[in-house]
Nucleic acid binder design. Structure first.
Lengths: 251, 251
DNA sequence: TTTATTATTTTTGTATACAATAATTTAAAG
DNA sequence: CTTTAAATTATTGTATACAAAAATAATAAA
């Protein structure tokens, strides 16, 4: 019953690297799992189970869960446990709105502080995005797409804003997982490229407009029309116009 | 040696209130102590000591310290322990810059969503500020001054931005503690009042300008001129133009 | 007296044990 | 057969025990 196989794999190499990385490793591993949709929103994150998987005690798992909870990737219910967050439509709108605001500030900083090397790195980042999209590697693309925005934040040289954006990017991934309607996404690589061009040309206003359009496009691809679980249930079980009882056939 | 006196006081009433509040209580208590300058920047926060003070085990204290660390109020050094943060001048500038950006977004939201009741509450908040200032209650004023900004965030109805601002306000208090030069502060109540007026008049641009001025005034009152501890030591011990040794008279 | 090195103590990091709460199953009644 | 209540099981919350690391004290050498 105790599947301890993964443990060895995890501890491989931890002898050489610093001790603190055990925490960080599990954190990264869980964040990846959530953002790559291997752990769906709402999934219960049992401390015992995770402890066994990673070969550590609940103490360590608890620390990681609290960290994820502070970043709103995980929701902790007292005496109930931790679950992968299920952001509401309202929360989704909030996150996108916050991103528009913060990324505007970041673009201002990036336009100011940019170096040619920065622009080069950004272009490489978009190239990697485009490559993963052509290869149909959706998981890699999601990650790289977020990385572009984080690279932009680095160029703006404000670690405080970077940290905020990092949280927002993670939460956006979770939101996309939950509310993306229809096709995966039309290639936003071009939008990223345009933003780089505007920044390189030090055209602040254009860069900001492009970024706002980009983020709005992202929001528009979501299905945030009050589709709560509750409403869904009602609509799913709503028969034409029957109102009388005795309508429960299939278990 | 074991001073367990405070324990009783802490647990008083915890029977009736929900269990989760023990954590929150200690968190609030420590945050207050730091922001009210009873715990100076750099102070070591020993887990054992805090556990004794609050009558709980290190487990609980650790959770609280991690929470404070995530909000950058506390800095955790691996294998060394937790310390009250000592924000660098660079970090101070970052925090104020982030505040200008986020509070601009908040003002936009507040102008849009305001109700007469909101304006009334804001005015009451400023009245309380003015009152505490007249009574010379500096601690209360610091707290109330921050509360004004948080009330504004509530009106904007974006919990994500509110959470960010909450962290920034706390960090600003810590920054002021460390870098405030000269007088405590010229009454910023008037600036707050002006901002309320502009919001009530739905004059978005004026409100934003006033807020930026207000935050810039706050930053200008700080002494962020590369006065690291290192530089301080050099300047403190710098005698007119002596350069030869044997200059250590006073211990 | 100062410096270097070793031994001791203290403190953090992690695992485990126990208590409290929630979830599940079983039994009983309608 | 469904519903309700009690008993059982599982899971989280907290305290404690032990291991690892750092800080401190003590000793020895220069």
């Amino acid at each position: 019953m105790s599947r301890t196989a993964p443990t060895a794999a995890l501890n491989r190499g931890s002898r050489a690297s610093p001790k603190v990385s055990q925490n960080d490793f599990i954190y990264e591993e869980m964040l990846d799992a959530i953002l790559e949709q291997r752990l769906a929103p709402g999934t219960k994150l049992s401390e015992d189970t995770l402890g066994e998987i990673f070969g550590v005690s609940r103490t360590v798992i608890r620390t990681v869960l609290q960290r994820l909870a502070h970043e709103r990737i995980v929701r902790i219910q007292p005496n109930r446990g931790a679950f992968v967050s299920e952001p509401s439509p309202e929360e989704a709108r909030e996150v996108l709105q916050a991103r528009r605001l913060i990324e505007e500030g970041i673009i201002r900083g990036a336009v100011r502080n940019q170096s040619p090397e920065d622009i080069q790195e950004l272009n490489q980042s978009v190239a990697a995005e485009r490559h993963s999209l052509e290869n149909g590697d959706h998981e890699a693309w999601v990650r790289l797409s977020g990385d572009f925005h984080l690279k932009l934040a680095e160029i703006a040289r404000n670690q405080t804003l970077s940290a905020f954006l990092r949280e927002l990017v993670s939460r956006t991934s979770l939101i996309i997982v939950q509310y993306q309607k229809g096709a995966v996404s039309p290639c936003s690589c071009d939008e990223h490229s345009e933003i780089i061009e505007a920044i390189a040309a030090r055209d602040e206003n254009r860069a900001i407009t492009l970024m706002n359009t980009h983020l709005q496009a992202c929001e528009d691809q979501l299905n945030l029309c009050e589709n709560d679980t509750k409403a869904d249930l009602y609509s799913i079980f709503a028969k034409p116009t029957r109102k009388t009882g005795k309508s429960r056939g299939a278990k």
